[in-house]
Simulated scan of single mutants.
Amino acid sequence: MSEAPHGAPIKTPGQLIAAVIAGFAVPIVIIVLLAYYVDNSTRTGAGTDGLSDAVVDSRVAPIAKVDIRDANAPRVYKTGEEVYKAVCSACHAAGAAGAPKFTNTGDWAPRIAQGFDTLWHTALTGKGAMPPRGGTSPDDYSDYEIGLAVAYMANNAGAKFADPPKPVPGQPAAGPAGASGAAAASGSEAASGAAAGASDTASAQAAAAMAAMKNVPQSAAPASGATQSADASQAGKALYQQVCQACHAAGVLNAPKFGDKEAWAPRLKDPIDTIYNYALHGKGTMPPKGGSNASDADVKAAVDYMISAAK
């Protein structure tokens, strides 16, 4: 049996031309379609949408936002609770730096006994580690709003204070009874001085330092005739780390910063006995022995340790 002869698929010149054109045209069409698909497909690679309108708007929102207020519109006062949460809670929520803890009747009882006007005046002018107006300015919160916050905190601890009178447009705002215009001006000057001389960070550092000094473990005083530790430098370093660094590590409350030669230079002009005396008996905001019951020898060793780091 013989096989049928095989015929060529291209038998005419026209078929040959069509085959040649198709051989070139089909790949070109496929390449064009693939390029179009890749260019228009969704890109999921990292950073590919970084310049989209939504992403750009979210990035510039914190600095591009403009808060426009009508200067002639009546002032909308914050409530006592709002002022407490925004300002006062930083210390009063946890009772930091000796602040009476929110809702703690034991902490607030002696303050409430002083009366609302005294508490309001204290909040405006500052006391201890608390800066005037809680570190804010009259532009942030008015005297009236500070008074609302005082009443809110005191009433949550058992007081029954009435809110201070709301300011009447066109009339001088009422202040705490017993605080004259001079006292109010003094409070404003104190607030301005605090704002110019120290930032909110410095105030927070001061409050933390005061809290740390209050929490210094009180060791028993050494018995009479007790001898100094054999390694005085180690004793001085230990007392510094336990007590002194609360202020000297960051240089808060005007304490010369540890290792800062310029800060220590004017102190080192005094005789060493004078420096010891300051440390033992206190000076300015520094309490005697930094608020501890350390021995005189250990306090002097701590002074020596700090002085050696500043030379």
Rank of each mutant, 00 (worst) to 15 (best):
V216M: 04
A195K: 13
P169M: 05
G45N: 14
A61I: 01
D107Q: 02
Y84C: 02
A208V: 03
A190V: 00
A196N: 12
K311C: 01
G291F: 07
D298Q: 09
V83M: 03
A232W: 02
K261R: 14
T44V: 13
A151H: 02
A250D: 12
P266R: 04
A177R: 10
A86Y: 00
G135M: 05
T48R: 09
A90I: 11
P5D: 10
A25T: 15
F161Q: 02
T201K: 12
Q242I: 01
I146A: 07
Y305E: 08
M153D: 09
G197W: 02
R43V: 15
A54P: 00
I68R: 09
A97R: 01
K101Q: 14
K269H: 05
N277C: 03
P131L: 07
V299Y: 07
A8L: 11
V168T: 14
A185I: 06
A173L: 03
A54G: 02
I275F: 00
P266S: 10
A207C: 14
H121P: 00
A232K: 11
A157Q: 10
H248R: 08
H6L: 13
D296P: 06
W264I: 01
P27M: 08
Q242G: 09
A232F: 04
P27H: 05
A157Y: 04
G290M: 09
G95N: 02
C244I: 03
Y37E: 11
P138T: 08
D117V: 06
A230S: 14
G187H: 03
G225D: 11
